[in-house]
């Protein structure tokens, strides 16, 4: 009796192993891509992820998504896991351009092609970098502001986290237009750390200091939406608000006329083009080493 039972168990075990092995084989037919995101705490990257997922589904590729939660060490272990899983290509949105280099080198050593998304890397072999041009976006916002103001007025710039490349590039683009325009003067330039609640309080303070403000440009939508609330609460009207990123809330605010415009980086497009480039490259096609994702101005 006991012998029979153990025989039965062994038989079951063998059957199940065989059937699992069969399952594995079926899955490995399609391409598997690993996507490492710096954070999913930001709607921008959630939309980017959704764009990548949609494209992967369309092309029949499997996408494994990991979230670094803005932590480079977590990112390193996540990517190591993806390498272990034997993904066919890695799409990386680095938390930091320097900290990512060892991970990219590991992937290079394992023969897995790497694509960087939205943020670049300072080293390692990267097949292609897919990102939108923040400097061009800042310029686009400033040019639209100049057009709406007729080239004259006091403007405020709400900056992102000091030292980040997005804050630097968007500010650079914006100021390259504004500083060349004698009719515009920047009366306040303050950081609100890409944060809506800080956008509110910082702009409240600026409103106290400046009785005449014609327009505000913020390095992201979160800050500009906070600023809009500050102006509303203070009963200050006639200010032109321009944001950056075109998150859902900002697009709605443009529709309702609270925001004049927001610069749309196209996160879904970045994710989609990233997956597209990886699949194209894996199936033998050639891809550019830098893929600029078009920006668009969202206006009413």
């Amino acid at each position: 009796m006991k012998k029979n039972l153990s025989f039965l168990l062994i038989l079951l075990l063998v059957i199940s192993t065989v059937s699992f092995a069969g399952g594995n084989k079926e899955e490995s037919d399609g391409l598997t891509l690993g996507l490492s995101l710096s954070t999913l705490n930001n709607p921008f990257f959630v939309t980017l992820k959704e764009g990548a997922e949609a494209k992967a589904a369309e092309l029949g590729a499997k996408l494994i998504i990991v979230d670094s939660q803005d932590d480079p060490s977590k990112e390193a272990t996540n990517i190591e896991d993806l390498i272990q899983k034997g993904v066919d290509a890695l799409l990386i949105n680095p938390t930091d351009a320097d900290a990512i280099v060892p991970s990219i080198k590991k992937a290079n050593a394992a023969g897995i092609p790497v694509f960087t998304i939205d943020r670049g890397a300072a080293g390692g072999d990267v097949v292609s970098h897919i990102a939108s041009d923040n400097v061009a976006g800042g310029k686009m916002a400033a040019e639209y502001m100049v057009e709406l103001l007729g080239g004259k007025g006091n403007v405020v710039e709400l900056e992102g986290i000091a030292g980040t490349s997005a804050a630097r590039d968007r500010g650079k683009g914006f100021n390259s237009v504004v500083s060349g325009n004698s009719g515009l003067s920047v009366v306040a330039r303050q950081t609100a750390n890409f944060n809506r609640a800080e956008g509110l309080s910082v702009f409240e303070n600026i409103l106290q200091a400046q009785s005449e403000i014609s327009a505000v440009f913020a390095h992201n939508d979160e800050m500009i939406l906070g600023a809009v609330q500050a102006a509303e609460a203070a009963g200050r009207t006639g200010i032109i608000f321009i944001g950056f990123d075109a998150v859902d809330d900002a697009v709605n605010a443009v529709k309702s006329g609270k925001l004049a415009a927001t610069v749309a980086q196209q996160p879904a497009e970045i994710g989609s083009l990233g997956v597209d480039a990886a699949v194209k490259s894996l199936s033998g096609g050639s891809v550019e080493s830098s893929i600029p994702v078009p920006l668009a101005l969202v206006t009413k």
Binding site: E159, A162, V187, A188, R189, Q190, T191, V202, N205, I206, Q208, A209
Partner: peptide
């Protein structure tokens, strides 16, 4: 508040 009023660089 003071830092914002005085427009101190970030």
């Amino acid at each position: 508040n003071g830092l914002n009023l005085l427009d101190v660089s970030s």
